[in-house]
Write a protein that binds this DNA or RNA. Structure first.
Lengths: 183, 183
DNA sequence: TTATTACAGAACTGATTGTTCAATAAAATT
DNA sequence: AATTTTATTGAACAATCAGTTCTGTAATAA
């Protein structure tokens, strides 16, 4: 990839994330993004078809980073706890959320980020589907699988949002415990 | 209230709901609303400051209708099941959702209705806070109250959305059972 | 060195929002 | 019934924004 392209792309992402931490997605205009990124209008549209695609690609990069670093962390902490336990995956996620790399938290708690939440849930769903059997309680065995997956994913997201909205006061371990208790 | 005012207000709501069943909230323009409602542009802005306020007031009317009719129904069906059971409240809600008065379902399952969901949850939260004690399991007793309330509310909303998205195939009784099982 | 590619910057169209105002029609008041 | 108040109309208006197009220029690759 051309060095110029890379720089422009990063400048756009940086500006976009800064703006996302200040206001809702729908309130942000292309004009604001290009002013802050200090690029030409035509350049923006050469990179992203619309604002929606910009968010989509940003999300994909964030999730790659989130899930990649999760796998690394899993190896690194292998001696601390059992990585095969379903809790470990979520504990890792909560830990990485706490770090707030790339201001992902603003996206989670914000009020007009339906699109972001959809992507987040899509990614989580894949993760949960693979591990579904480890969650099976006798009680929920007769429920449709898609319902169970949806419930786990939704509960994770809502737990994370509650955590963020209340100022991240609990430790990742504690919030994982909350999460597993209600589950 | 002036008969003229009432008529235009209803025409606006009717047009707005019809449009909401066709496309996302953010895609709907004021121009489309006034064309469909067959009123002047200035008239719209005499009634609603912005499109957001229109949605807000629509939601308030829908919730009044939903919760009012729920109370009536509660009396009407008192002989059928125990209304003090926490399940009955939610069963009523699921029943009224199934009727889909005023196309409320489109709002629930749609993709850009963060605003609507916020109002929905606010109303539900009040309901749940009053009945929280009836939900207390020993397991969740040590969790913060706001977390528990949030979890119940979120789970209800997500259950309803799953139900709607999957074509309302289950009966209200069945979906209430699903809901209470995962809870 | 040459050819290719990305960017700047400006101008432009079209859509949309929200406001204003004078004329008209409906409703309320006397 | 006559008068006053109020709501609506319809059109025109400015402002903002999205997305496109173009030319000249600078960076990169061949």
């Amino acid at each position: 990839m051309d060095r110029r392209q890379r720089k422009t792309r990063e400048a756009i992402f940086r500006a976009f994330i800064e703006l996302l931490s200040q206001k809702d997605f729908n309130q942000i205009t292309v004009g604001e993004i290009i002013d802050r990124a200090d690029i030409g209008r035509a350049t923006f549209y050469a990179h992203f078809e619309t604002k929606d695609y910009l968010l989509k690609e940003l999300c994909e990069e964030l999730f790659c980073h989130l899930f990649d670093s999760m796998h690394k962390d899993e190896n690194h902490h292998r001696h601390i706890f059992d990585c095969d336990a379903p809790s470990s995956v979520f504990l890792h996620l909560f830990r990485h959320l706490q770090k707030n790399d790339n201001n992902i938290l603003e996206l989670l708690s914000g009020s007009n980020n339906e699109l972001f939440l959809r992507y987040f849930k899509e990614n989580l769903r894949r993760l949960v589907e693979n591990q579904l059997s480890t969650f099976d309680a006798e009680k929920s065995a007769h429920l449709p699988e898609s319902f169970r997956v949806n419930h786990i994913v939704s509960t994770f997201v809502e737990t994370a949002r509650w955590w963020v909205d209340n100022g991240l006061k609990e430790t990742p371990e504690k919030i994982t415990e909350y999460f597993l208790t209600v589950l």
